[in-house]
Write a protein that binds this DNA or RNA. Structure first.
Lengths: 134, 134
DNA sequence: ATCAATTGCGTTATGCTATAACGTGTGTCA
DNA sequence: TGACACACGTTATAGCATAACGCAATTGAT
């Protein structure tokens, strides 16, 4: 899944997500981009679909929101080296993205044992980050 | 979190979920219960909130839907002995609920290391069950 | 060069998911 | 008995996501 050059809309959405230090809903992104000519949710959702496909953005299922991939610079996402997990602070909104090989492997083992063919795995931990828990 | 006797609405919602072999959205539950006097989403959501609190029901974040806890009979859920994971078949809709101590422990270690205080953890694997993958 | 297929884009309308805010009734118990 | 907690019912609204239409630009094979 090599990412081609982004289109204008895709770039705009990606920029907004990259600048944000917290997840954003599609509608929040839309509002941020009204000045750039965005008028309808579909403009955002279509861009997000592509960005997700390219691995530049992640969707947080438990929030119905989106974040830029923390490792977009490296080969992490574009190579799809495994399942990514998220720790979401419910106080400040900060999201830590990490990969745990052991967890990945363990879930893979379970799937293998059960004959289940995984397509996409979601791991999200909600709680308080170290700064907010202090 | 010992579950007290369920109220009428809670029982109705729980029954519907128990009879279903796939997750159900709140609105689908509502439709199933129109004959029993349900008229508004809030009647369902309020019951679901309690059932979730009692550990009798789980919410599937990646589907915005709900399932009865597979282990409701045992002490699994009511005791909250750890994080539960779900394997969701995208073909037949069947959901397997399981617990993996190693995964649980591993994520706990990560949290401890980072000073993150977990409140709720979501693990959902979407794919094809053995029957549908065959 | 041209035609067909693909892709992105814009717009309108709609559907699905979830909660706010208000009021009612009922049971507890100090 | 009066304050409180809790379940319930209703209306309205907020928030998230996609269907369906049409147009424009690009690509690529013939």
């Amino acid at each position: 899944m090599i990412a081609p050059a982004l289109t204008k809309n895709q770039s705009l959405v990606f920029e907004v997500l990259n600048r944000s230090d917290a997840p954003m809903s599609a509608y929040t992104i839309l509002d941020r981009l009204r000045d750039h000519g965005f008028r309808a949710p579909l403009q955002v959702y279509r861009a997000l679909d592509k960005l997700l496909e390219f691995g530049l953005v992640h969707r947080l299922e438990s929030l119905n929101a989106f974040v830029a991939c923390s490792h977009a610079q490296s080969d992490c996402c574009s190579r799809g080296h495994g399942t990514v997990a998220f720790a979401i602070c419910e106080s400040c909104g900060h999201v830590s993205e990490f990969h745990d090989h052991a967890v990945d492997h363990r879930l893979g083992d379970w799937a293998k044992e059960k004959g289940f063919k995984p397509a996409k795995t979601t791991i999200e931990i909600r709680g308080l980050c170290s700064a907010c828990a202090a």
